[in-house]
Write a protein that binds this DNA or RNA. Structure first.
Ligand SMILES: [Zn+2]
Ligand SMILES: [Zn+2]
Ligand SMILES: [Zn+2]
Ligand SMILES: [Zn+2]
Lengths: 146, 146
DNA sequence: CCTAATGTCTCTAGCAACTATAGCTTCAAG
DNA sequence: CTTGAAGCTATAGTTGCTAGAGACATTAGG
């Protein structure tokens, strides 16, 4: 049995984060020692590692909640899990597209500025006027979820 | 002079957002009409457009605050503004690198899953074990702000 | 001129996913 | 037995908004 500190160290998760996960019901309430301190076994360790890895891959806590409850029913079809992963992939691809456009514009701004005074700064100039941009990089209004 | 609604429409910014910007001091306190409603002139319009464009390019409100106060002193050197833009470019590049790695892993997961039961689901399997990943995609620091 | 429909006002609370602080109690090493 | 690290709870702060309540202002139609 691990204390919360050891568990956090093992999983690469900060202690308050573990308590937060318990509070929102992502981790079950931990066993307690005689002195009221949390104790964790191997199952909790695996669950936390799963959460950490999914977070590292950009899944939201809501998606992770669903993935965890799916993984608790091994006999069912994995279609729902695959759908969550595909949705996450789509989300990442759309952010990638947007960031690529931003990178283009930021590079242009930075390269075009010859230095000098603010009055002649290309950075300030472009920020003041989107028509000086090469691409349409605007923030998409809404995301669709299927 | 524009009302807050017209200004928001003109700049593509929602009304509560404008009030929020005023509240945090990013926009100066607006003039008021006889009936206590906010009124905006051309200068406020330009300032809001600047903010909106910079937000679209991913700058934080803190960075925008600095950029605005720089642009209010046209005689000074633009080095500080350029530095902010370069930092933002670096930030975007690092997020791009990370998202690219995530995309790789998510694609692998999704492609490798042959369907079937959760017990055999490659998505769940990979999420349970980072050593099944092809790249090191771990979270170096901050994320989010789509 | 009156009314109904918008628009605007202030204030508060909520979202994600933590992080930080304060003021305790418990544990382990020496 | 003492001390300092680690744990506990509870609350508030972070970023950049967004949503709601309940009251006042403005505008268009009849
Ligand atoms: Zn410059
Ligand atoms: Zn632009
Ligand atoms: Zn699957
Ligand atoms: Zn991995």
């Amino acid at each position: 049995m691990l204390t919360i500190g050891k568990l956090g160290e093992a999983a690469g998760v900060k202690v308050p984060t573990i308590r937060y996960y318990e509070q929102i019901g992502l981790l079950p309430e931990a066993e307690r020692s005689a002195g009221n301190q949390r104790l964790y076994g191997r199952k909790a360790q695996e669950r936390l590692a799963f959460i950490r890895h999914a977070r590292d891959l950009g899944f939201t806590l809501e998606a992770i909640r669903d993935l965890l409850s799916l993984s608790d029913r091994p006999d069912q079809s994995c279609a729902a899990a695959d759908a969550i992963a595909k949705a996450q992939l789509a989300e990442v691809e759309s952010r990638l597209a947007r960031l690529t456009a931003l990178k283009t514009e930021l590079e242009r701004m930075v390269v075009q500025c010859a230095g000098g005074s603010i009055a002649d700064c290309r950075v300030i100039e472009v920020l003041s006027d989107h028509s000086l941009c090469a691409t349409d990089h605007r923030h998409p209004e809404s995301e669709v979820q299927s």
